[in-house]
Structure formats: C-alpha cells, structure tokens
Write a protein that binds this DNA or RNA. Structure first.
Length: 566
DNA sequence: CTACCTTTGAAGGAC
DNA sequence: GTCCTTCAAAGGTAG
C-alpha cells in the first residue's frame, strides 16, 4: 500500500487522487438524518402501539396477517435499530406475554423484513449483512430467501448470510436481539443472556426458559453441529419449534445448505456451518449454523457428500483432514469491529476509496470522534456478542484460532524492534500544506479527532471499558508498521505518565509504547488530504476546537497528535 | 493463491 | 500486573 502510507509529503498528491469524496456536506446530511430519524421514530412508535394491541389479542395467524405494512423509513440499519429500541422500550414497560404458549416472553416488535421494500435491496448492504449476520434466521423472503433457492439471484450471492425462510412466514415473535440504545444502559445485563432475567423497569421476571440457557448452547467446537439458533432464547419451546426441521420438511430452510453442493461460493467462509457429511446431522436441530463458524472443509472442498462418498483425489493427508474438520470458530467481534461493519459501507459510499486499509483508518478516526454514549452502544453490543459466543462455544478459546491465519510477520516485528534506531525511522508527516492544515482535524491538545469525551460520557457503560482518562491519552494512531514507531518523537509520552490508573486497565491498552499497536509514531499518512468530515463527523465541538487551535494546527504535524496527558 | 495492509479491542501466554 | 502477540472484518494490492 505504498500509495497510502508512503512516506513524505510527496505522497500527498497521490493520496489526493486516491481519496476523493463526494460533495455533500456531512453536517447537513447528519441534520437531515436526525430529522428524518425523529419522524421515523414517531411513526414507529405509533405503529408499535397498534401492533402491540394486535399481539396481545390476536392469534398467531392473525398476527401474521397483520404484519406491519411496508415501512420504507426503516430501510437503514440505524432506523431499524431505532425501531428495535422502541420495541425494547415496550418490552421494558412490561410488554410480556402473560399466557401460554409465550408466557414470559416479551413483545418484540420486528422490522417488517417481509416487506418487499426491505428485501428488495434498498436496505443498505451493510445493514442487510449485519442483520443477517446477527439473525441468520431472519426471514427475508422474496429476493433473498426462498424466492428461488434453485436459481440464486445476485442478491443471493452478494449476501454472505443465507437466509432462512420460516415455514410460517414471519412470526410476530420472531426473535431479534434488540440492540437498542436503551438496552445499552450500564449495568443492564442483556436480559436474554443472563440467567437471572429481570426486567429492569418492571421487575417482571422473565422466566429463564430452558432455551435461554443451555440445552442448545453447550457446544464445544467439536460439537458445533448442534448449534441452536443463537437467539433461541426467545423461541417458544413448548412443544413446538420456531423453525422446525422436519425430515425433508421444509424446503431449503437454509438455502446455503440446500445449495451447498452446487453453490460453494454461497457457503462463504464466515457463515458456512461446519457441514460435514450430512448437513442435517451436523447442524443443530434448528439447522442453523452460527455466523462465527467457518468450516475450512467447505471452503476447500465444497462437497455435499459425506465421508462415505469420498471425494476423488484428495482423500489423503488424514492428519490434516483431521484438523480441517475442526470448524473454525471465529472470535466475536469487538466494539470497533462492529462499528466498522456498520459504518464501512457508509464511508465507502462517501469516498471513492475502496481500500480497506485506508477505510479502516478513517473508521478509526471516526471511532475516536464518537461520543461516549455512541461508543458505549458498541461496547455493549460487543459484550453481548462475547456473551453469546461464550454460551455458544463454552470451550472455545481465542487461542484456538492462533495460527489459523498464516503466521504473521512476527520475525519482522521483533527484528524491527531490535534494530530500532532513530535513523531508520521514516519521517513522520511533519508538513502539510497550509490550506489543508486548516481543514486538518488536528490539534495540539488532543485532536478534535479524538473522542470529545464529553463530561456526560462518564455514564459510559461499565461494560464499555470505563475510559475517561485513557481515551484522552489515546494517541491518534495514525500509524502503521511497528518498525516505524518511535519514542523519539514522543519523549513525553512514555507510558501515559498521566495519573490515571486507567493507563493500564484502560480499554486502550495500546497506550503502551511497547504494545503492538501503540503506534504513536507513524509512517506519514497524509490524512490532511481528507476533508475533516471524512475523518470525523464535524461537531460543534470539533469546529470550536478547530477554530481555537487554528494557529496551532498550522504548525503541528498531523500524525503526532495526542491528547494532553495532564 | 496468499499474505499484507490498517484500524481497535479482547484474550491469553509469558514474565 | 504488565507486556506482547494474535485475531476478528474488509477488500485492494503485491508477490
């Protein structure tokens, strides 16, 4: 990626070409988004009321018939999330089913994903992917799920997650994790994962259904086939399965499985279940693989045949086979990864840049620009991910995946470390054209790029690493290779001399200069070629800071920005 | 075809 | 307790 990170100002021009953005002012965009979001929320609220009445008084079939009407305003993930949030609010207000068969279960409003509008591709790719990733059972008929599993559409191919068509179409209680902001309240354990489930507001105990706990989850990596739907905690278990698999029962309940043999590409690495010989046997009774499971077997040899029907040629190397058979259970995504997943598409759409490395840099900057509350959402989300993951794969350890990626350039790193010398460093980006510096989101005491760290931020979720100080001390990390790091440029930054105890226990352990990503120094990345809006959504805070630090900004090297530690 | 790049955070091993 | 390493996603790029 020499174009991006190549040293020196000479690269600025190249980078300018590389990164060009659309014209729209992001601030305006934000405003209009907010306005429409509020409007959407109102609509959602009213529709929720209606639906709730339906839910509480109607039979299942009636509910099915009264699915929400098309709601184009829910086309984005954010809006859907708000929708979920409202649903959750209702849940917390005591919206529980009182009688069988769903006693104890909350009314969970669901986005109308049966709505053609939502399934016709207008949903942003990221949102679609995300939803499907989180809820592989999500019923998105029409173009994606069942429309025709025999003749997959491009949509099929573009979606990494196959979608299950629920035999009874969308059930009003189709479980969905409601990653609402409400739910991110500190110290509110995810109700669906905690055995001691108690509604925070009403105190209404939600009977810990057997399904919420273990029967479906006690999986070791070796037993992945028995994975239940991750959300079976919400599934009614009294004598019926939400997504029953009858032998030959429902046609291609899981298109990817059905098409496993013919469409290896569909069974992408991430979401392919550990489909062994007979998919039906290796899957949980629900037939739902977990997104985190990746079967190298599938990837390498998309064979629907079992071991009983050996694939020609490659039957040898039994030892290796043995290892390959172990499904690759991926790590749960951390907060930032979740954020990236959600925001990547947006960033990509806003600039012509496609290279992930560069996109990630932008996202990293934006991440720091997020408010505490916003970050807390993702921390909480990630916490739930981990929790769910640990329930799904109790015996799994992150260590299990060590070495599954090809060995990193470990030697190079250590070598660079050993041979460290100031002379060998590439210069950091000390210089930037003045007019660009003005726009540069740089400042001395802390870049405006860094988290605003509003005072109110103190309310960050406990789950979210409580980082008040640490984040301030967080370097901008406009960095790159370890060998380019240098304390030379940061004599004062040694181990966050700041008083905070958080230096060590912070969510940003990378503060350590010795850490892999401490990355205080940088190969210059000419981010000044990016409009500030790209690096971090502008806020009044940013602008004010920009203004007040204008003079300073002009003389400050971009990549050396850190928060003042005092 | 495969590893790298780049970001942050989590986890686990080593000390 | 601290430090260090690896991996998670993503997709273009280089070897």
């Amino acid at each position: 990626m020499p174009q991006l990170n190549g040293g020196g100002g000479d690269d600025l021009g190249a980078n300018d070409e590389l990164i060009s953005f659309k014209d729209e002012g992001e601030q305006e965009e934000k405003i209009s988004e907010n306005v429409s979001a509020e409007r959407d929320l109102d609509d959602v609220k009213s529709s929720l009321v209606n639906e709730s009445e339906n839910n509480s008084s109607s039979s299942d079939s009636e509910q099915t018939d009264r699915r929400p009407q098309p709601r184009p305003e829910l086309e984005t993930y954010e809006k859907q999330r708000e929708y979920f949030a409202e649903a959750l609010r209702r849940q917390q207000d005591g919206g529980f089913f009182k009688g069988p068969p769903y006693a104890g279960y909350p009314f969970l409003m669901i986005p109308d994903l049966t709505n053609p509008y939502l399934s016709n591709g207008s949903l942003s790719p990221s949102a679609r992917t995300y939803l499907q990733m989180k809820w592989p059972l999500l019923d998105i008929p029409g173009s994606t799920a069942l429309k025709d599993s025999r003749s997959p559409t491009p949509g099929h191919l573009s979606n990494k997650v196959p979608v299950v068509q629920h035999p009874h179409h969308m059930h009003p209680l189709t479980p969905l994790i409601t990653y609402s902001s409400d739910h991110f309240s500190p110290s509110t354990p995810p109700s669906h994962l905690s055995p001691e489930i108690l509604d925070p507001k009403t105190g209404i105990p939600r009977t810990p259904h057997p399904s919420e706990l273990s029967p479906y989850y006690p999986l070791s990596p070796g037993a992945v086939g028995q994975i239940a739907h991750p959300l079976s905690w919400l599934m009614p278990q009294q004598g019926q399965h939400m997504y029953p698999i009858t032998p030959g029962g429902f046609r291609h309940p899981y298109p990817a499985l059905a098409m496993n043999a013919s469409m290896p590409s569909l069974v992408s690495s991430r979401f392919s279940p550990h489909v062994g010989p007979h998919p039906a046997h290796t899957l949980h009774q629900t037939g739902i693989p977990h997104p985190a499971i990746v079967s190298p077997t599938i990837k390498q040899e998309p064979s629907a045949d079992g071991p009983s029907t050996p694939v020609h040629g490659k039957a040898a190397v039994p030892v290796k086979k043995e290892e390959d058979k172990k499904p690759h259970i991926k790590k749960p995504l951390n907060a930032f990864m979740l954020y990236m997943k959600e925001m990547r598409a947006k960033v990509v759409s806003e600039c012509t840049l496609k290279e992930s490395a560069a996109i990630n840099q932008i996202l990293g900057r934006r991440w720091h620009s997020l408010s505490r509350e916003e970050q807390a959402k993702y921390y909480e989300l990630a916490r739930k991910e981990r929790q769910l993951h640990s329930q799904l794969y109790p015996g799994w350890s992150a260590r299990d995946n060590y070495g599954k990626r090809k060995k990193r350039k470990r030697e190079n790193k250590s070598e660079a470390k050993d041979n460290f010398s100031p002379q060998s460093k590439k210069p950091c980006v000390p210089y930037l054209p003045a007019e660009k510096m003005i726009d540069s989101p740089t400042s001395s005491h802390g870049s405006m790029l860094d988290s605003p760290a509003t005072p109110s931020a103190a309310l960050a979720s406990p789950a979210a690493p409580a980082a008040t100080h640490s984040e301030q001390a967080q370097p901008l990390s406009l960095t790159t290779k370890p060998e380019n790091r240098s304390q030379h440029h940061f004599p004062a930054l040694g181990k966050a001399p700041g008083p905070g105890p958080s230096a060590a226990s912070s969510p940003h352990p990378n503060l350590s200069l010795h850490g892999q990503s401490s990355a205080l120094l940088s190969r210059p990345i000419p981010f000044t070629s990016l409009p500030p809006s790209m690096l971090a959504p502008p806020t009044s805070f940013h602008q004010a800071a920009l203004h007040s630090h204008h003079a300073l900004v002009q003389t400050q090297p971009l990549s050396l920005v850190t928060k003042s530690t005092d």
